[in-house]
């Protein structure tokens, strides 16, 4: 059988071993995602990329493409699910877009726009989370972390430094820093490390770059995320995860 899947009636070819997300990305079909970055092993945790494969809900970043799959992607039901997940992320952290340096370059915000999220819908948690300004070149603001673990994967797999990790379970899950003090300033993180480049939100931001690009002229100010793609560009010579 030919290596073809169908996403929303569109025939998409795939190579053996590719996931649905891989095939869709290669064909230029946008499936919303937050924890996925094609340079890293799929994580499957944000659930924003869930599609219906032959009628069953599956995360497209972890499901292998197999010939003949009939996939629903851009449907009102799935968009509603994605909007709901995005709203839950917004109320779980402290995402104050008007006061965030990443606004306009933020994938969480862009997915919210794409799914037409107008309100947080749920009750805000307003959790108290620390900001760690101890590193000379990088600030980490845990208020904005969405637990995608891209920095964990980048630091472990590419930088070979293992600076970030997850701790706690369920609603208590949070990002931690592997240093004796737990502070970023006491790690060997470099501003050019991959881990600093991959954050899809404003949790890990570089110092001395604040508002170099004015609000309104930023990446996702130009066009929606289904046209613009991910904010984190693969670095030169980047290897695909497979």
């Amino acid at each position: 059988m030919e290596n073809i899947i169908t996403i929303d009636e569109q025939m998409i070819p795939f190579k053996t071993g590719q996931t649905i997300m891989d095939a869709a990305m290669e064909a230029g079909v946008y499936i919303p995602h937050l924890c996925h970055n094609p340079e890293f092993e799929p994580h499957g945790s944000c659930r924003v990329c869930v599609v219906k494969v032959n009628g069953r809900m599956m995360s497209s970043c972890t499901t292998k493409a197999t010939a003949g799959q009939k996939i629903e992607n851009n449907t009102p039901e799935l968009q509603e699910n994605r909007r709901c997940l995005t709203q839950m992320l917004f109320v779980e952290g402290n995402h104050v877009c008007p006061g965030c340096e990443k606004s306009g370059n933020c994938q969480l915000q862009a997915v919210a726009y794409y799914t037409e999220m107008l309100s947080p819908r749920f009750q805000h948690f307003y959790p108290y989370r620390e900001l760690d300004p101890t590193h000379p070149d990088v600030i980490i603001d845990f208020n904005r972390c969405i637990l995608c673990e891209l920095c964990v994967r980048a630091s472990r797999d590419i930088d070979q430094k293992n600076i970030f990790a997850m701790s706690g379970r369920g609603i208590k899950a949070h990002l931690i820093i592997n240093s004796p003090t737990g502070k970023l300033g006491d790690t060997d993180l470099n501003v050019n490390d991959k881990a600093v480049q991959v954050c899809p939100v404003g949790a890990i931001i570089k110092r001395k770059q604040g508002y170099m690009n004015p609000i309104g002229e930023r990446f996702y100010d130009q066009a929606p995320i289904d046209e613009m793609g991910d904010i984190a560009e693969p670095h030169a010579g980047a290897k695909h995860h497979d």
Partner: peptide
């Protein structure tokens, strides 16, 4: 109609909610 960031999610005044 809730208009603007503060009406919708508390906005900047809600930063005091952590204290």
């Amino acid at each position: 109609i809730a208009m603007g960031a503060c009406a919708i999610n508390g906005g900047v005044p809600a930063l005091r909610n952590h204290y």
